[in-house]
Design a protein around this nucleic acid. Structure first.
Lengths: 119, 119
DNA sequence: CGGTATCCGAGAGGATACTG
DNA sequence: CAGTATCCTCTCGGATACCG
């Protein structure tokens, strides 16, 4: 076991867990990352429609944070109408195996809510 | 890619991500799980001291939720002074590989905050 | 020892309207 | 199209005090 994972007397954000969670925790970030990994490149409203329930404001904030953390890239095309493409960075890509595990564990171990998805 | 990970028009809590996060998201649950995986069995105040910053109330709530979700077991010894031991269930144990990945990614990719831990 | 009860503040998340 | 600007709610987490 890696004892650096469970240090005592250290700020939680300075643990591996805390840092990783601060980047991809929250309700939407993993979903966003996963859509990016599926589409290589995706536009703002496309992403918004895909996720459905997320408000513009929240999506906007999430994308800004993911970009600031170096997990995604934002490419703006100066034209009318505007066009912006989002994609994963290498750093973001390196998180995909982790996301896959999260997703698979959740699917295998969810009580029943996910049944509908598989039908 | 598993398209069930990124469904459209489905409640987020009904995705693999959403479900897994609902169980081990938040500031402390992963840390608690990890301490349990290190110690097999641990007592309430021992855990409290290990984590340090967590308030009694919060620890209490987290343990209740983890138990309700079937990830940990609570064994109470009816004696004076009281004694309660917490340990991982098999289901909880199955999450450890995921926690290890979270921890390791965080350590590798943190800007610098974790340096101190490794010295 | 192993908790509860109470109160509180900050921030995440959400709905709606507006803009270059 | 790709966002901002407000405003609002609500849960998480935190501090302190008390109990069997």
């Amino acid at each position: 076991m890696r004892e650096t994972c469970v240090p005592t007397g250290v700020e939680l954000k300075d643990t591996g867990f805390g840092y990783t969670l601060s980047l991809i925790g929250g309700k939407y970030k993993m979903i966003i990352m996963y859509w990016l990994s599926e589409n290589k490149v995706i536009r703002f409203n496309e992403l918004k429609r895909s996720i459905g329930t997320i408000p513009y404001k929240t999506l906007s904030i999430m994308l800004k944070e993911l970009e600031a953390d170096g997990l995604i890239m934002r490419k703006e095309f100066p034209q009318i109408p505007p066009k912006v493409e989002y994609s994963l960075t290498d750093r973001g890509l390196s998180l995909i195996p982790l996301l896959t595990m999260m997703c698979e564990w959740g699917e295998k171990n969810s009580p029943s809510a996910l049944e509908a998805v598989h039908r």
